[in-house]
Amino acid sequence: MFILDIISSVLLIAGVFFGFSGALGLFKFPDFFTRMHAASVTDSIATILILLGLILQTSFDINTAKLLFILAFLMITSPTASHALAKSARHGGLLTLPETQVKQQERTY
């Protein structure tokens, strides 16, 4: 199917774009929380797009079902992992960027 191929490639390319921008954000953003934000949000959308693109490449058989299962699994686990990571960092005493700036100002006075 020609049209399905085109849709699937568009989805795959969009997914790769979001994944790449997430990786870029991971390196460019200033502190832990913003970096994690970049990685986790783009990770979710990239997963959805890439898996949807792959689903369109299957011939709608058992493989489609397996990909859907993987999609459902990742849709739940990856935000949970990000949440747990952020919460642990917070629990361990890591401050966000504005808070550290406030603290530094207090220290200079």
């Binding site: 739940i76 949970t80 949440h83 919460k87």
Partner: peptide, 15 residues
């Protein structure tokens, strides 16, 4: 473990 971590508890119980 994560005592007050409700999200993790729910997801772990499910998975």
């Amino acid at each position: 473990g994560f005592k007050a971590h409700h999200v993790l508890h729910v997801v772990a119980r499910f998975f």
